[in-house]
Design a binder for these strands. Structure first.
Lengths: 198, 198
DNA sequence: GTCTATATAACGATAGAC
DNA sequence: GTCTATCGTTATATAGAC
């Protein structure tokens, strides 16, 4: 991001797209959030779609860098599960809108990953993934199927952020109570995982 | 639904809104799916918003009838957790798009519940909820916080449906492999819950 | 680079013939 | 009830002055 205005626009777009998604977010909203003229959006990013893809790609890479580096350092997932879960959880505390944004947009446009990344980048991702999986399976986790276990861990970490607004209604929480609930879940998760892995 | 055409429109709207959400779904899509003229949508439902609310309310009530009746019959949740989880899971196998539809729309419009239901209906829901909660807390589930446990159970059931498209990408699944994964999770869940509740 | 003015297209919604 | 034609609005995008 070599330009100042471009960065301001990008940051505003980051917020608005995450809050509203591609279809609901309006260029007008982004321009107002950035405090710039709407036509500047086109000067820097040409089209709404380009701006959106730029934002989405940035968020995907951010997630990978934040979490992938941890996976690389640790030899075994099962040994360091608590720490791993904490890092994930803390990331989502700081980015509460990110999970729903991510899942919704991938749902609306399943092919978008191939538009955002080259074949080499996707290949590199797959290579890393199978490397991690090999590590995990060597450790063994009892008689539970590995893929189901992985999905389970992602579920218990991510779902409360995804369903934040729904849970607020079901449990009669206001915004601060909801944030408190999500934060305190960070303490709860290690206990829970201990029970599952035994 | 007293009219034939109205029913056809409603069913088409049910599908399209669930697949795309309110903002992304177009009246054109719904009319084409229903094989009717677009202006008929207005004749029967006046506005897109009315049609959408009609669909959303129907899905919420469907979920309540399917699952609430079970909660009413059973004395204790912990005793019948396996069966309860199976009923939930099977419901979502039949309605895989429903969770993301529901959570996205509630996220986009948190006040919509108050527009769909009367104060009496909402009060009745809260009354039932605290009744169930009383039942559960009497049983006791060790030292784990109750609300966190409830959210955990919902997480491990619902998240895989929410993140269906994302998981397809991460685990390299095609559509039929994804459905197989979701179905087989029904067998996995009781084992998992046993571990958590011990 | 930034602005105003305007073109273009999509979409929701309505009017009116049948 | 169902259709065609069309309106009004909003959103994206472009042209051109500065």
């Amino acid at each position: 991001m070599d330009n100042e205005t471009e960065k301001i626009i990008f940051d505003a777009a980051l917020e608005v797209f995450q809050e509203k998604g591609f279809a609901t977010a309006k260029l007008k909203d982004i321009a107002e959030r950035a405090n710039i003229n709407q036509s500047l959006l086109h000067y820097y990013f040409r089209k709404k779609e380009v701006l959106f893809k730029s934002v989405l790609k940035h968020k995907i890479l951010e997630l990978f860098n934040e979490l992938g580096s941890l996976l690389k350092e640790k030899g075994s997932l099962t040994e360091n599960m608590d720490e791993l879960v904490q890092v994930y959880h803390n990331y989502f505390v700081k980015n509460p809108n990110m999970p729903l944004f991510f899942i919704s947009e991938l749902n609306n446009n399943p092919g978008i990953i191939k538009e955002l990344f080259t074949q080499e980048e996707i290949g590199e991702f797959k290579r890393k993934k199978s490397e991690y999986l090999k590590n995990i399976s060597l450790q063994g986790v009892g008689d539970l199927p590995l893929e189901q276990l992985i999905v389970t861990f992602i579920s218990i970490i991510v779902f409360p952020f995804l369903a934040k607004e729904t849970l607020k209604i079901v449990f009669d929480q206001d915004e601060s109570q909801s944030m408190e609930f999500l934060k305190s879940r960070g303490q709860f998760l290690p206990e829970l995982i201990k029970k599952i892995l035994i």
